[in-house]
């Protein structure tokens, strides 16, 4: 064992401690991808993250960048205030589907329509993770949650919202894409989309949004190793991957 080749290391921006999220959760790898890009693009000293409320609210204390913690649903208006007074800052929001699409839908729509020059990242796992598995506005039809025990039903619970497509319709959005982190190639694409969204902001072109489908095996009621397959089978058909607007 005299010649060990380094094939992997985590970014310096992720403080060396273990995250506290569930086994099989997709959010940590999405966060690491974001922080790696911030490091590579040399943005650390300019970065202000505006965090929403969800499982990922555990991240601000392990991310070595400045974070402004917002209320549930309110990150887009808070990020608007930040970017307007600090136009040279690199500003991104971190929200879940419950935060952005359920609680704060109006916020993200208006921020996009105004063309606010920050990047919105939404981790979409189609469920309220932190509360223990309840229906959000993106829960897909047929999906079992604690408030849709028999599966989400169109008549009783309404239909899921495709936030990326909604944002893409607004004139102020400049870049919109959807990725998923359930496969290595998916993570690679997520990284590409995030990069392009960040560049959109840095070039002053307008609002950018990347929706990232993430696994939540705990609240999908499946074993951790079956999260990726569940995502592929249930979420990808409703939330197609790819660049939606650029």
């Amino acid at each position: 064992m005299s010649h060990l080749e380094k094939v992997f290391e985590t970014t310096d921006l992720l403080l060396r401690t273990e995250h506290s999220l569930c086994p099989g959760c997709g959010e940590p790898v999405a966060l690491r991808t974001i922080l790696e890009l911030i490091g590579e693009l040399g943005l650390r000293e300019r970065t202000i993250c505006v965090a929403g409320i969800g499982c990922y609210t555990a991240f601000p204390m392990i991310m070595d960048v400045d974070v402004l913690q917002a209320l549930h649903g309110r990150a887009p208006s808070v990020a608007t205030g930040v970017k307007r007074v600090r136009p040279d800052a690199f500003v991104f929001t971190m929200q879940g589907d419950g935060d952005m699409v359920s609680e704060g839908l109006q916020e993200v729509l208006h921020a996009a329509a105004r063309g606010e020059k920050f990047t919105a990242v939404v981790f979409n796992n189609a469920v309220f993770g932190e509360t223990g598995g309840h229906m959000t506005a993106t829960t897909v039809l047929g999906q079992h949650t604690k408030t849709t025990i028999g599966g989400r039903d169109r008549e009783r619970h309404g239909n899921p919202i495709r936030i990326a497509e909604l944002i893409a319709q607004l004139d102020g959005s400049a870049y919109v894409a959807r990725a998923a982190v359930h496969t290595p190639s998916g993570i690679k694409l997520a990284r590409q989309y995030l990069h392009d969204a960040f560049r959109t902001q840095l070039d002053g072109k307008g609002f950018s949004l990347v929706e990232i489908l993430t696994m939540c095996p705990t609240d999908w009621f499946v074993p951790p190793d079956q999260g990726p397959a569940f995502l592929e089978r249930n979420l990808v058909p409703i939330y197609p991957l790819g660049v939606i607007k650029h």
Partner: peptide, 9 residues
Amino acid sequence: GMVWGAAGC
């Protein structure tokens, strides 16, 4: 929310 963001800076 906007005021929160600006004041936080």
